[in-house]
Design a protein around this nucleic acid. Structure first.
Length: 194
DNA sequence: ATTTTCAAT
């Protein structure tokens, strides 16, 4: 069997897809979401390697109803029926922060699933109306939300990209843009609702 | 200080 058709490659992005969607200084019109799942046991974290993967949104130009990437992600989590007697950490690396609607859905989901924790690292901030309140609501529901830095981009490259043993190559401006977005996100998350 | 973005002018 060729490497490209081996079962594990189904959960890997090709290099171009990763770069086109996660480069933080451009604004692609689609969203990718990479996820991993760990069991938390005291100070120990056990990665469930078979539950790592990625989803992408379905655009308005495709047949059927458009769906954001987070919706597909929630479908997958629900399909696993994770043991309520254990505690899990879900980590997402997503190319845009959740819109207000998805943030609300995720917040509700976390409220109904106290055995799950959610960490979100986003490449850039999706800033259509209502996004700030949505992100604050998601944070209030217990999610940790952060901007991807070179550390997270490299982690994604190593774990979610079919990189053919090539090392991660940071792009020009990665750090500057990331730092700016970190500052913006902090301001958003610290603001009070009114 | 940085934007128009989970497509369709």
């Amino acid at each position: 069997m060729e490497a490209s058709t081996a079962p594990w490659t189904r959960c890997l992005l090709d290099e171009n897809t990763f770069n086109e969607n996660f480069m933080n200084q451009i604004n692609p019109r689609k969203t990718y979401l990479c996820y991993k799942v760990e069991i938390l046991d005291g100070d120990t974290r056990v990665l469930l390697d078979e539950k790592k993967g990625f989803v992408q949104n379905k655009g308005a130009n495709e047949p059927g109803k458009p769906r954001h990437a987070e919706s597909y992600f929630l479908d997958r989590i629900r399909s696993w029926n994770l043991d309520r007697g254990l505690h899990y950490r879900l980590t997402c690396f997503i190319s845009w922060t959740p819109c207000h609607s998805c943030a609300q859905e995720l917040a509700t989901f976390l409220g109904e699933n106290s055995h799950l924790s959610l960490h979100i690292f986003a490449s850039r901030i999706y800033s259509l109306p209502g996004y700030e309140a949505g992100l604050r609501k998601l944070q209030a529901a217990g999610a940790q939300i952060a901007i991807m830095t070179s550390k997270e981009f490299e982690h994604c490259w190593e774990n979610f990209v079919d990189h053919q043993d090539r090392p991660f190559q940071p792009w020009d401006g990665l750090e500057v843009v990331s730092q700016h977005l970190c500052n913006s996100l902090q301001t958003i998350l610290q603001m009070q609702e009114n």
